[in-house]
Amino acid sequence: MTTPRTPEDLLAGASVDEAVFALRPDYRALLVVVDGIAPAVSDDASEALLVAAEESARALLAERPVEELPHVEAWRAAYRAFGAKPQRTRNSLEALTRRAPAGLPRVNRLTDVYNAVSVLHQVPLGGEDRTRYAGPPRLVRATGAEPFDTAADGAGVVEHPEVGEVVWCDDAGVTCRRWNWRQARRTQLHDGTTTALFILDALDPMSGDALEAAAEDLVAHLAPEGSGVRTWRRTLRPGDNAGGGGVTC
């Protein structure tokens, strides 16, 4: 179990199992690798982005409850399709959007940016440290034997997903449970992260253009022109699985 040597390796090996596409043929995953990040604490730029996301959420929720927002509603239906109860385990987009009006967390610049972009573009968006991966990311329906490194009551524990649960995993175990609900401790971003993998999850009614716009916004804030930061991306969709097709810089 070794970390892929290059961003191209990681993206080329990424895949979504056909059993997941059978649940939601409209699903797309846009994977973005960002390399050369300079670790930084929250700053004025990330604060402004978070404030904009909070204001956007307030405006959205003034018109309808969070569970009726189009992309949130689609993800709640996807959770029910594999047996999860969305009112108990909320997808990351719903959880952040619910929290935003009262204030999003301030963690560090990297985390602040991707949380804000998730709310602003209404897309589930996860970020993980690429150096902590063991093999490429794969979205599968769990057997129930896969280890999931998490915490309970302040202590580290290893849990296992339910049989048939949709999970992201690598060669060492689950990296995110219930599609986009809870990330493992092993691969999570930290204050010293310099290379990251971001996963943007889309269902109808989110268009391909809207998904690409969210990725562009993320990259613009993490890799501004002249920064020396490099990015790569790949979209996984039905008919475009493992094999490296579509990896772009």
Rank of each mutant, 00 (worst) to 15 (best):
E73G: 08
D201R: 15
R58A: 15
L218C: 05
H121N: 12
R185V: 14
P7N: 10
L49Q: 07
Y27P: 00
R109G: 01
V157S: 08
P70T: 09
A74N: 03
D129H: 11
R234M: 03
F198Y: 15
S227R: 10
P224Y: 12
A78I: 02
L125P: 00
V123K: 01
P39H: 09
T150M: 09
A100I: 11
A29V: 10
I37V: 14
C169T: 10
A202L: 07
T131I: 06
A214N: 01
L49K: 02
V140Q: 03
G13I: 07
L49Y: 03
P147N: 07
S42D: 07
M206V: 15
L139W: 04
A53M: 07
T89G: 04
G127V: 05
A57E: 01
D149W: 14
A196R: 00
H121A: 02
E159R: 15
R5Q: 13
A14F: 07
R24N: 03
G156N: 09
S56H: 15
L96G: 00
Q183R: 14
R132P: 00
G245E: 14
Q188W: 06
E55Q: 15
R130V: 14
R230I: 03
H160S: 11
M206C: 08
L10D: 01
T194N: 06
T235Q: 05
A223F: 12
D171K: 07
N241Y: 02
D240P: 00
G192K: 10
A19P: 02
S42N: 05
T6M: 13
E165A: 15
V140D: 13
P136C: 10
P238S: 11
G239L: 09
G154K: 06
V157M: 09
D170Q: 06
R64Y: 04
R230Y: 05
T2V: 11
A53S: 08
R80A: 14
F148D: 02
L69K: 01
E8H: 14
S56F: 13
R109K: 14
G127N: 06
A62L: 08
D217L: 05
T194V: 14
D149L: 11
A184D: 13
T6Q: 10
V247L: 11
T3R: 11
V117A: 04
K85H: 13
A155M: 13
V119Q: 01
L69E: 09
T193Q: 07
E225W: 03
T194C: 12
V72K: 02
